[in-house]
Design a binder for these strands. Structure first.
Lengths: 201, 201
DNA sequence: CAATTGAGAATACACGTGTAAGCTGAATTA
DNA sequence: TAATTCAGCTTACACGTGTATTCTCAATTG
């Protein structure tokens, strides 16, 4: 037996998703992506799209899920690395940047749809980012901060890192190390600041 | 004489700009805004649009200019206020949030097109934000930091404040004060952190 | 006053879109 | 083997789009 029907279906589904990701370049946002373009790229007829997704929004949500996976990948990778020693901040930022640049388009989607126009997508993106922040909050709490302070720290750090990530994606290769170094410095400010302010109290 | 021809032209131009801003709500991004929709809202024929703008992109750039004006308005207002005493950080954040909520749609454009799909727009938005950062950098340098450190601080602060601004725009009114308080706290972290790290050296 | 200018409108075109309806043929099932 | 299922295709339609062309007619100019 060559390939079962369900295997083939899964394959096509994957082709649609990959086609969408491929098209999500610098010049193309998800909102401006049309069903026909996606199916053309995936090599199927326009109407066949509906065998896999209710509409473009559903595809969008699936793509955001992919983002979620990638974010978790970052966390795992970073944890693994800094458990073997080295600066936590430096390692985390480097890992984030690395994964970002390996999956540029999926991150473009994340950055763009965060302030996007489709409510469902915005919500989904927000959920993924919140999850990321909460993970970081937990870590910071374990270092000995109270919940509220930890959350503020985590949120600020994520804002800075995401900002750097977006900047890096559009920057030329030469400037990327600068962006990265600055991000590290900025996270250090936040960490040190939180420490200062909470020892004073 | 009722109204001169050039006055009328300026009026129509303004009508187009205002129509565009009006339509840039939560559900409509600039990219998904069509020439015909704008002219319909402005009360002119589609083709008359070209008497004022070469294409939609040129209108977009004009809108970004409006953003620039608003950003400068924030800086002036904040400066005026904290010269009369009070916390610089608190006053600045409050002013930013206030102006953001007074011009929600123009800021939605700013937030969205920052990671947008049209190169010209992205560049323009970036220029405005850079200007904002540089202004802040100057201020921080005057407090006694060296250029590089001041810039890193400024950039981080802007990232945090813009993040809060975007969050606040989509948040319900009840949560906005929380967002604002958190942003203030986060900026304090950054300021304190920079202070700590630079006194240590 | 007569001539020119130019903002705005009307009409028309080609094009890309989402998706409804119905068909085909191979994989699956009984 | 015969019946069923269902991924994918073809065709077709109505609709919104950007914009080229051509017109109108009031403000401006000489």
């Amino acid at each position: 037996m060559a390939i079962s029907r369900s295997e083939q279906k899964e394959k096509t589904r994957r082709a649609i998703i990959d086609a969408a990701i491929k098209q999500l370049g610098v010049e193309k946002s998800f909102a401006s992506l049309s069903l026909r373009e996606v199916t053309r790229e995936a090599g199927i007829a326009p109407t066949s799209f509906y065998r896999h997704f209710k509409d473009m929004e559903e595809l969008g949500l699936t793509l955001v899920d992919e983002c979620g996976l990638t974010l978790r990948q970052i966390m795992r990778k970073a944890r693994k690395r800094f458990k073997k020693g080295g600066s936590v901040i430096r390692t985390s930022v480097k890992t984030f940047m690395e994964v970002t640049e390996t999956n540029p388009n999926i991150f473009r989607l994340l950055f763009h749809e965060r302030s996007g126009t489709t409510h469902a997508l915005r919500t989904a993106v927000d959920r993924e980012i919140q999850f990321f922040i909460v993970e970081l909050t937990d870590y910071i709490q374990n270092i000995g901060y109270e919940k509220e302070a930890a959350f503020a720290q985590a949120e600020a750090m994520v804002a800075v890192v995401f900002n750097a990530g977006a900047e890096s994606l559009e920057a030329k290769l030469g400037q990327r190390t600068d962006v990265e170094k600055r991000a590290i410095q900025q996270l250090r400010y936040i960490a040190a600041g939180a420490k200062c302010l909470h020892l004073t109290k």
